[in-house]
Write a protein that binds this DNA or RNA. Structure first.
Lengths: 195, 195
DNA sequence: TTTTGTTGATTGATCAGTCAATCAAAAATA
DNA sequence: TATTTTTGATTGACTGATCAATCAACAAAA
């Protein structure tokens, strides 16, 4: 399918280029077709780019679904979500460039923003669903929001190479956040029971 | 000074536009001068943009220094750093647009990346310095890294309007992260002493 | 024959950067 | 002080390059 080839090419060019400021010619050349054909299939550059964002998030979603299926316990599923977020392919230069470019683009394109909101909600909700099995609802909501933010923040710091820690350490930090908050909650619960 | 006026204009145009894809003409018009003058002062568009990033981070730094001076205790200084990060002006549309655009630009411009790395290090080190007064060094490093990432992540989620919580709740979440980890550490310390 | 895929050539617009010319104010000179 | 000279600020007009988008024509499949 030509559409798929063009979207793949777009992703590669965005990665090389490090931004969404890419030309239809570059994308078409990368895909081995004429620029006119890219217009034929997508109507405009913006539509091609939006399709690229969608595909990008779809791929992450598929990885997450697979990882969630493989894990059996709620705690295991939490780890699976974290692991996927820091998976090696998320740090491929073109993936990093795409993410950051999409964040910026969301300020201008409502459609791009909607996709990223969906990603953010999905991350939060995957965490929340499994946390609810381990602690009360209100606590689960707090922890899910904090963990999701921490994941995004650690990802950006890794992407900028501004974090003095490894990817494994980033995973450990997120796991530790969840473990610690859950541990403290169960102590409080035990304390309540004692009274 | 014309340079300053042009940098201010650039910031405003970037905000309106929602990205770094702005023209010298727009910036010059916003500043009320001719496009040729902008070139006269900055040599190139890239230099003007880099100067704009620098000014942007300088402003945040000044705010932080002031807030740190006002706080007296280490714990108070931690709260001050958090408060500044979520200060109202950080969520002005042009500030949000600038931050996200700069993150994306860092993939292409080594100089922009360097500035953002400096910001990330500064945030971490402000947290670390005060945490060291409250817990052992290794723990302080872990907590500082986690808190810095959480701040960045929460900021992005607020910027995209993908967080279902208020700015105040974001601040509370970060405070809670620090409080909880410190609390657990002091309990462990007490437990060690008992043995 | 009709439909679908594909291209080369072209257009119209946008933009960064240049340059020669103008103007004002400061500095040097008489 | 009065004058000339120099310097820096400022602009309008222009250029060369780039690019999204269009379209008519051609090829291949149905």
């Amino acid at each position: 399918m030509r559409r798929k080839a063009l979207v793949d090419a777009a992703m590669r060019v965005i990665g090389d280029h490090g931004s969404l400021t890419v030309t239809m010619s570059e994308i078409a050349k990368q895909a081995g077709v004429s620029p006119a054909l890219a217009h034929h299939y997508f109507g405009s550059k913006e539509q091609l780019l939006i399709e690229t964002v969608r595909t990008h998030l779809q791929r992450l979603r598929d990885n997450t679904v697979t990882a969630l299926r493989a894990a059996k316990t709620p705690r295991g599923k939490l780890s699976a979500v974290i692991r996927v977020s820091f998976q090696a392919d998320q740090f491929a230069p073109e993936t990093i460039a795409a993410w950051l470019a999409f964040y910026a683009e969301a300020q201008r394109s409502e459609e791009t923003r909607r996709f990223l909101v969906i990603y953010a909600r999905r991350l939060r909700s995957n965490l929340l669903a499994n946390l609810k099995a381990l602690c009360p609802r209100e606590d689960a909501e707090r922890i899910a929001e904090g963990a999701a933010a921490m994941i995004d923040g650690l990802y950006i710091r890794q992407s900028l190479r501004s974090a003095p820690i490894s990817i494994e350490a980033s995973i450990a930090l997120t796991e530790d956040y969840i473990n610690t908050l859950l541990a403290l909650l169960s102590r409080k619960a035990a304390f309540q029971k004692d009274i």
